[in-house]
Design a protein around this nucleic acid. Structure first.
Lengths: 247, 247
DNA sequence: CATATTCGGTCAAAGTCAATCATTTTCATT
DNA sequence: AATGAAAATGATTGACTTTGACCGAATATG
C-alpha cells in the first residue's frame, strides 16, 4: 500500500470516529507499529491531525468536552453491538450476494467485513461509502434519498430490489414481537426492508436485547422469517424460539 | 501497445481507484518497470497525476504537502464556477424533473438551488446529501458505487436511467471540442453521462474557460447536443457557436 | 510504587528510484 | 525494399527510501 493511501485512510477513519489508537490502525491498515507511528508523526507535522499518547485525534478536537457518563453508557451498548456485528460479518462468505440494511446496528458490521469476494448491496450511503473505502465491491439502491437517516427509501428502491436475489441479508429493527414480528416506525423504510427480506435466501436480524417485546408502527416481516442474532437475551417468552442466536 | 494508450489506461485506473502502484501497473499493462516509471514521470510533468513513492495518486488528492499554487488556481476558477453555477441553478423551475451530474462544477450549483417544487435526480451521493439537507426532493441513481469520486457509475446506473425523462440536465465535462464533443477520462462515468444526456429535453454543460479545446479519453456527447454555460471564453473557434452562453 | 503500555531512535532488509546503455521498433527518405 | 536517424523499450546498477523488529526510556494505570 502506498504511503499516501495510508495517510488518506488514517484521516478518513479519524474523521469518522474522532479518535484512533495505534493498535486499531495496525489492524485496519495491516501494517507494523513502526509504520503507523511514522505516519502519525508525519501527519501531525503536516498539521492534519493531533498525535496523542496511544494514537491520534482530530486536529480541532484537542480539548475533550465529552461527558464521561454518556461515553460509559454508550460503551455498554456498544459492546453488545460489536459482538453481534462481528458474528454477523463472519457469515459473509466468498461469492455471497449480500444485502445490508441501513441503520446503526448494521453499521457496526462494516468494520468486521473482510470478505472481498462478495458483492454487497445497501440502501445506506454511509455504509456504501465506508465499504467502498475498504475496497469492497458495493452497489447502492436507487430511489428517494431520505435526509434524516441518510438512506434510500420508497417505491423506486422497492422496484430496484425486485430484480435482486440475495444469498444473505442483514437487517436492523426497532421492535421484535412474536405476534407482530419485526417492526419499524417509518412506512417507507419498512417497504424497503420488507421487499429486501423477501428476496434474501437467508435473513438475519441484528438486535440488542432492548429490542425484544417492542412493537413499532409498521411490521415489515413475520417473526419466523429471520434468524435473530443477539446477546444477553433473558426474556422467558423468547427462550424457546428456534430462530434466536443468543451469543 | 501505444504510449498514449498506456497513458489513457493509467489515468483510467487512477480515476477509478484513486491510487496505483508501479507493480500494479506492470501487471495490468504487461510492461516493464522502466516504461511505467517513464510514463508516470511524463504524466506527472503533464500535470495529469501526482507521482509518489511507489506509484501515483490522483492530482487533487495530494496529502503530503499543500501546494500553494494549486490552491491559488482553484480559487481563480472558483469565481467563474460560482457565476456559472448561479445562472444554471436559476434555470430550474417549478415542476421540472432535473438531472444533476456528479462533479465539482455542478456541486457549486447546490448552494443556489432554491426551487423546492422540482424533483432532482443525481448520481453523486454528496450532492444528494446536501440537497436533501436543504429540503429538496432528491432521488439517487442505483448502481455501483465508486469510492474515489463518490458517484454511482456503470451498467446498473445506465439501466436505471433508461426509464427517466428529464426536463433539464446539468453536466460537467473535462474537455470540450467542436469535433470531439464533450469528453471525460473515465469510461464508466462517461456511460452514465451519455445515457442521462440522451434522456434530457434540455442539456446544459457547465464549463469554465479552461475546458475548451481539451479532449479526454471518452466522448460522451456531440458538441451540438447541449447548451454550454461558461464565462470569459475568448477562443476564436467557439465565438460563433450558437449553443454557447458566455456570461 | 509496581506493572504494563507506549514512545522514539537505531538497524538491517526489502523495496523503490533515476540514470545509463544496449536492443528493438518506428518512420521518413532514399 | 534498404537505410539511418529518432524514439521507445527493457535490463542493470548504485543511491536512496521505506519498512518492520528491537530496545531502553518515557508515560499511563491501578
Amino acid at each position: 500500500m502506498l504511503t499516501e493511501e495510508r495517510f488518506a485512510k488514517i484521516l478518513s477513519i479519524l474523521e469518522r470516529t474522532g479518535s484512533v489508537t495505534v493498535q486499531q490502525l495496525m489492524a485496519e491498515l495491516n501494517t507494523s507499529e513502526s509504520t503507523i507511528r511514522r505516519d502519525l508523526t508525519a501527519l501531525d507535522a503536516n498539521g492534519q491531525l493531533t498525535k496523542v499518547h496511544g494514537g491520534a485525534i482530530l486536529k480541532n478536537a484537542a480539548y475533550s468536552t465529552i461527558d464521561d457518563e454518556v461515553i460509559h453508557r454508550k460503551e455498554q451498548n456498544r459492546e453488545a453491538k460489536e459482538i453481534i456485528a462481528k458474528y454477523a460479518a463472519g457469515l459473509i462468505k466468498p461469492g455471497d450476494f449480500v444485502y445490508i440494511d441501513a441503520g446503526t446496528t448494521t453499521e457496526f458490521m462494516i468494520d468486521y467485513i473482510t470478505e472481498k469476494q462478495a458483492i454487497l448491496v445497501t440502501n445506506a450511503i454511509t455504509h456504501a461509502k465506508r465499504l467502498a473505502e475498504k475496497g469492497c465491491k458495493v452497489y447502492i439502491l436507487g430511489g428517494e434519498f431520505k435526509a434524516v437517516t441518510e438512506a434510500i427509501v420508497g417505491e423506486e428502491a422497492v422496484e430496484t430490489l425486485e430484480k435482486y436475489n440475495f444469498t444473505k441479508g442483514f437487517f436492523g429493527t426497532n421492535g421484535i414481537s412474536i405476534q407482530k414480528g419485526f417492526s419499524t416506525p417509518e412506512l417507507r423504510e419498512a417497504m424497503v426492508k420488507k421487499k429486501s427480506m423477501e428476496n434474501c435466501r437467508e435473513c438475519y436480524v441484528l438486535a440488542d436485547s432492548s429490542k425484544f417485546n417492542q412493537i413499532s408502527s409498521v411490521t415489515f416481516a413475520p417473526f419466523e422469517s429471520a434468524t435473530i442474532i443477539t446477546t444477553d437475551m433473558k426474556q422467558e417468552a423468547f427462550q424457546k424460539c428456534q430462530n434466536i442466536l443468543n451469543l
